[in-house]
Amino acid sequence: MKLNLKIWRQESKESKGKFVDYSVDNISEEASFLEMLDTLNESLVSKNSVPVAFDHDCREGICGMCSLVINGEPHGPEKATTTCQLHMRHFKDGDTITIEPWRAQAFPVIKDLTTDRSAFDKIMQSGGFVTARTGSAVDANEIPIPKEVADKAMDAAACIGCGACVAACPNASAMLFTGAKVSHLNSLPQGKAEKERRSLLMVQAMDEAGFGGCTNIGACESVCPKSINLDVIAQLNRDYHSSSFKKIMQF
């Protein structure tokens, strides 16, 4: 099929960006969205033009590297699907597709469609872990965990850290991401000892990184490629408030 593309081009973090029109031809329905962009890039290279920069790596929907707002939707039109797993059979011959980077203050554009998402790592470094030094663990079956609890933790842990939730949120809030991590660790017995500390520190890091506040819109949930549920935000709020309360009471 033949497609018209409107792609955001921006040379560097400092420069001003703009949309540029391209067209690609002979795209197979079986191709993935990123393979379509590869084709565009190969044709740009053959004309000695600089190809479009975009992040991608595993192309299996799990590394969280790929991003792209496609026709206004993070990761495009298919539910629970990352851009790399989106296939061209979902588009029609002659379609015009608009492609933009994640847009959020905390995720500055590095080049074209590539953004800097290191703010997520900062949140994780502040408390997204269980302190478990190598070699200090007890036998794994000494901590029986009911299946329902383990399953719930796994639901939250499925987050791939892509940032679509932030890109979809009008406030550019990172509550779904942070909630997922907090919910994963706080639900498990191993994570209980640091539950309060973790909730406080991660929310603080999130605020410091420049993410906006949550006003319960729910756009994050609907674009999440891993279908992370809004419940994780509720749990984060609960754990955060009870932790703040305890902290106040201690002083």
């Binding site: 269980v130 663990a137 007890v138 794994a140 901590i143 299946k147 383990a150 796994m154 660790l185 191993q190």
Partner: peptide
């Protein structure tokens, strides 16, 4: 053991 202590949510039985 190490992974479980870190909170890796391995599959469990009932």
């Amino acid at each position: 053991d190490q992974c479980v202590s870190q909170g890796v949510p391995f599959a469990r039985e009932y």
